[in-house]
Design a protein around this nucleic acid. Sequence first.
DNA 1: CATCACGAAACAATAAAAGTTTCATGAGTT
DNA 2: AACTCATGAAACTTTTATTGTTTCGTGATG
Lengths: 148, 148
Amino acid sequence: MRKDSRLSRMLHVLIHMDQLDAPATSEKIATMLNTNPVVVRRTMAGLRDKGYVTSVKGHGGGWSLAVALSDITLLDIHNALGESSVFTIGLSDEHTSCPIEIAVNQAISDVLIEAEALLLERFRDVTLDKLAVGFADYPLNQQTSSGE
Amino acid sequence: MRKDSRLSRMLHVLIHMDQLDAPATSEKIATMLNTNPVVVRRTMAGLRDKGYVTSVKGHGGGWSLAVALSDITLLDIHNALGESSVFTIGLSDEHTSCPIEIAVNQAISDVLIEAEALLLERFRDVTLDKLAVGFADYPLNQQTSSGE
DNA sequence: CATCACGAAACAATAAAAGTTTCATGAGTT
DNA sequence: AACTCATGAAACTTTTATTGTTTCGTGATG
C-alpha cells in the first residue's frame, strides 16, 4: 500500500522556510523535494487555506510562513493536508446487516479509534520549533545524494 | 488513499467457517465477499501458511479452520495478512543527511511506533470467539443488499 | 510592458491492487 | 480408468488513486 510522505515533506519545507529571508518559489521547493511545482502548489494550497503560509505572485513572490513555528503543531499540518484516515486498515461493507460483520467491524473500529486518538494527541504535543535544531548551514536547495 | 479491508473480510469469513460442517470453497467465499476465487486463494494462502486454516483439493474440498476461534486473535490474522504498516503516513527520504529531515522523521516515527504498539496490543487482546455472537441463522452466502 | 510566479483546469503517466485467464495437480465419484 | 471438482501457480489485463505535465490566465514587480 502506498505511503503518503506529504506530512514529513511539508514539515521539512516549513522549517527550512523559517530560515529564509525571501519567499520560496514552488519551483525551488519542488527541486528540494524531487517533485514538480504543480504538486507543491496543490499541497501548499491546503496550508495556505488554514493560514499557516501565504503565497505571493510575481517577481520576488513565492511561499512564506504566516505564523511562528512555535505556533504550529504536527497535528495542524496533518489536518491541513486533509488525510482522510491515518490507517491503511479499512472495514468491510458487503453484509452490513450481518451480525458477524457488525461485530468484527466494531472490534476493529474500536481499536482504530483508540490508536488514532493517541496519535493525534501526540501530534498535538509537538510544535515545529522543537524540530528546528542543529540545522546550521544546511542549504534549502541542496540535492539528495540518494537520488538517481 | 486506498483502504485494505482484508482484515475485516477475513475475520468475517473465518467466523462463518466455524459454523459450517463442510469446507468452504474459494468460489463460495468469493461470492460472499463480492470478489473472485483467485483473490480468495491469494489471501487465504497467507492464513494457511501460518496454520490457521487448511485447504483441501478436489471433491468436497475447500477451506476449513485449523484451530479454534478462541485460539486466534485479531493480531494473528493481521500478521498473517502481511501488511507492511498500518499507517498511510510515511517518511521522506530526499535528504537523509539533513538534520531537519532527520528530526522531522524521528518525531513522526516516534508517534507512529507508539500508536502502532497500542493498536497491536489491542488486537492481541481480542480472540475471534468473542466476535462470534448473535449470528444465529445468518447464511454464509447471503447477498448484500447494498451492492449494485 | 516584459518577466516572474502563483492559480486553475485538463490531460497523461505511473504504480499498486484487484481481477482474469489458463493450465497443472490432486482428490473424490462413478 | 475416466470424470468432475477444487486448489496451486503463473502470466496477463483492468482498475483506480496519485503524481506529473501542459497550457493558459492573472497579478505583481521592475
